Amino acid sequence: MAHPPLVSAEWLHRRLAAPDIVVLDGSWYLPTAGRDPEAEYRDAHIPGAIRFDIDAMSDAASLPHMMPRPEVFASRMRALGVGDGMQIVVYDGHGLFSAPRVWWMLRTFGVGDACVLDGGLPAWIAAGHPTEEGKPRLRDRRHFSARLDHGAVADADDVARALETGTAQVVDARSGPRFRGEELEPRPGVRPGHMPGALNLPYAALLSDGHLKPPDALRTVFAENGVDPDRPIVTTCGSGVTAAIVALALETLGRPARALYDGSWSEWGADVARPVATGPVRAAR
């Protein structure tokens, strides 16, 4: 990577006018949050930021937020005026929630110069930097190359093999109650619980006030949840969004995740052929 995966509001403010910098607003919220990312973007966004709609940029034919075909992603990025050679900074309105998913998508499609604004829009505003409203004029169309790293995208069979053989830790970023099956899943037809043998590391444990915790604190969180960053890891969650927060944390530690399970619990929990466990976290192998 040419740059660290996280940048600060001050770092971005100093470089915002650079011709090779493009800022993406990747805000996305759970339906229960009661927030409208499009309306919030129109009300206030980082000057010049382009709206990146995760739903619109995904393949929604079967499951939520699935990766689109490379040619589809490339076409949509070109339409946004994003091209090869640009450094892309992604943020969201929560602080650190959906931006890592956009970062992971970009990286998986071959964009090496992609990073996340630590603390997102709240950190930008708290630092006293300006925002603008409305929709900015899109840049001219640019050539964008998308080369999918197939190894970075796990499917259900990959996860099943990892769980059976122990060749990788499967780390679930959902909350403890959802992981243990104490809460109903928000999507119809999806059973509560978790994959037998998976480990639970709630994404919120990696954050502090909308920022990713510092490296030493991240290592502590991983250890407390039975996860060894030095061993291969496949991340998962409800629909592939917060799993990317775990992937981002691992990247900052210099221990990139092996893969992210794109279908996540939306796929596994709905497939009656896949086993489901409930109750406390099972100890790591």
Rank of each mutant, 00 (worst) to 15 (best):
A270I: 14
R178S: 10
R147N: 11
P68R: 01
G128F: 05
S266I: 05
A277V: 07
Y41K: 14
H94D: 13
R76Q: 15
V102E: 02
G254S: 04
D59G: 13
L30Y: 10
E185Q: 09
P4Y: 14
E10W: 11
V241L: 11
W265T: 07
G112V: 11
R15M: 00
I50F: 08
H129D: 07
F109A: 00
C115V: 04
P202Q: 09
V7D: 06
G189H: 11
V153M: 15
G151Q: 10
A205H: 13
V90I: 08
H194V: 11
D228M: 06
P202R: 03
A17E: 03
M105E: 00
D25S: 05
R231K: 13
S239Y: 02
E132N: 08
P122I: 14
Y261F: 15
G26F: 03
S8G: 04
L148V: 03
P130W: 05
D43N: 13
G176D: 11
R191L: 13
R285I: 12
G119K: 04
A284T: 07
A60G: 13
W268R: 02
H65P: 15
E185T: 05
R78S: 15
F109S: 00
D84C: 07
L80D: 04
V159S: 04
V276A: 12
E40D: 14
I54D: 03
D118V: 02
A114Y: 01
C237T: 05
V221A: 11
Y261C: 03
P47V: 04
I46E: 01
A146D: 05
T236Y: 09
S266L: 06
R282K: 12
R282I: 03
G81K: 03
D92F: 00
D92H: 03
P19D: 15
G238M: 07
G176Y: 03
S266P: 12
A123W: 02
P202A: 08
